[in-house]
């Protein structure tokens, strides 16, 4: 593939903390290689800003290989930018061309308050996990791993749900800021496995209750979450969670 360099205009959300209002600022960036990752382009810009005595842009990032779920930019109106099934850190500049203007915002959701610039607080996800995103097994209690065969089909579906990276793109993409895709992925992973059976009902009820308490919105089936999910988590997990929730609600005493 041909390599090329480009000049771009960035409009980036700047906000000093959760209490103060934010606003867009415009930054020109020059000589960006098509081989750079999107975050490397931000590195170049930040180095320039620091040298010029200006405030660099704060953004979350860590593994830079699309698995830790830390990076979180909303780029040109899409969570993680224009490429499908992709995280911001894996987006490369060959997705853009010379002269483009790129608008970058933080995840916007009441349950994800802005910490600074493009960084948001996603601790609500930890609290939803605490409500039931586990199998209650203490260390040392397990039986031999092969004593319980699991249908490959179910194991594969469980794995696909479990590959959620907890980045929050589903919430950012949803007009209602719903966290249904995130929650349903964990509920599905465990509901599909025999090990998850004993807590099947309490799990879904408690996780959904915590999700509502955190201030995430309702699901209205627009499927924006699936479309922008970097791991392609399917909305069929939401359908499964709704069934689980209904069943659990009916049998609850």
């Amino acid at each position: 593939m041909e390599h090329y360099n480009m000049n771009l205009t960035l409009k980036v959300w700047k906000q000093s903390n959760s209490r103060e209002p934010g606003a867009f600022e415009t930054y020109p960036v020059q000589n960006i290689s098509s081989e750079m990752s999107f975050l490397e382009m931000f590195d170049v810009l930040n180095e320039q800003l620091i040298r010029d005595g200006k405030d660099p842009i704060a953004f979350d990032h860590d593994c830079r290989e699309g698995i830790c779920g830390t990076c979180s930019m909303y780029i040109n109106g899409k969570a993680h930018g224009p490429w499908e099934k992709n995280t911001t850190c894996q987006l490369h500049m060959r997705a853009f061309k010379d002269g483009d203007t790129i608008v970058v915002e933080p995840w916007r959701a009441a349950a994800f308050p802005v910490i600074k610039d493009l960084m948001v607080d996603r601790s609500a996800f930890d609290r939803i996990m605490q409500a039931g995103g586990y199998i209650s097994v203490n260390t040392g209690n397990a039986v031999d791993a092969n004593s319980l065969p699991i249908d490959k089909k179910d194991a594969d579906l469980s794995f696909m749900a479990a590959s959620c990276i907890g980045c929050g793109a589903c919430v950012a993409a949803c007009k209602n800021s719903s966290a249904m895709l995130f929650v349903s992925a964990k509920v599905s992973q465990l509901a599909l496995l025999p090990q998850g059976e004993p807590e099947r009902e309490s799990r879904v009820l408690n996780m959904v209750a915590q999700m509502d308490k955190e201030g995430f919105g309702n699901c209205t089936n627009t499927y924006a979450c699936e479309a922008e999910c970097p791991k392609g988590i399917s909305v069929s997990n939401i359908a499964r969670m709704n069934r689980e929730y209904l069943k659990a609600g009916l049998s609850a005493d």
């Binding site: 586990y134 097994v137 397990a142 791993a145 249908d151 490959k152 194991a155 479990a162 090990q195």
Partner: peptide, 15 residues
């Protein structure tokens, strides 16, 4: 222990 926790390791067709 990991299997008991619900870690979805790869499986063969026999489960």
């Amino acid at each position: 222990h990991c299997v008991a926790q619900g870690v979805p390791f790869a499986r063969e067709y026999g489960g």
